[in-house]
Amino acid sequence: MSLMEDLRYGVEDLLRTERLPHVWCPGCGIGITLNAFLRAVLRRKIDPNKLVVVSGIGCTGRAAGYVNVDSFHTTHGRAIPFAIGIKFARPELTVVVFSGDGDLFAIGGNHFVNAARRNHSILVIAVNNFTYGMTGGQHGPTTPTGAYTTTTPYGNPDRPFNIPHLAISLGAPYVARWTTYHVNQLQNSIYKALGMKGFRLIEVISQCPTVYGRRNSMRTPLSMMEYFEKNSIVKNDASFEEMELKYNEKIVVGEFRVAKDIPTYEERYDEVIRRAKNAD
């Protein structure tokens, strides 16, 4: 069998296939992201018994229920604290947080900020669909200014989070953003991040044709994908202003930060324990 066929059958083993078809809407980008993630795991040859997928609440939160590895469907916004706890108790495990924008940046915003600041060794895959999909399309902290949602029928007055900028300013060693259109780049990016340590963030701009697209003149899954296709620019050295997502404008994607040899929280904590033991 060729490598690609191996990956396809490997993905099938890493999924709880008895639960498929999954709950996500037709054309939802979470399935594409999950597929890319599972392929990257297979390419990294991570033992499924040493992998933990943690997710919060929301559409993306359902991902934990479909992966055939140890997974954790946590309370709303608390995916990162649970993941940190797992990593602290069992440092040999690879811990991945797979959650949505509302869960990670609205309800769990403070956890995200502090985990990134302390450089906990977890990989965060943040699926950003610009809205709260599961509850009916309310505006959230990542909805671009001017976008129409159920709670902002005349356009959103808020400014959205600049997620890569936030993560870089907190010193996260790996920060990337891709859209679901960039399937290969996304997979390679997750592959690369799985081989690093420290707090790694990959923001995946995903489509939500059901509740976001239809209020913003992108009614079909394909029209949202076309928007990503036509408006994405790959720019690894993008400035903070360029990273900001604006309504119906260009999406700057790429690997914004790759830094090695930044000590993780676990390493610094071990160091403290060592010093304390030698003190007397």
Binding site: V11, W24, G31
Partner: peptide
């Protein structure tokens, strides 16, 4: 041509390419 792009884009894990 067995490029496997359909597999990568399928959100529902519904497509396989047999080489």
């Amino acid at each position: 041509i067995a490029c496997h792009l359909c597999e990568l884009y399928c959100p529902d894990f519904a497509i396989f390419v047999e080489e």
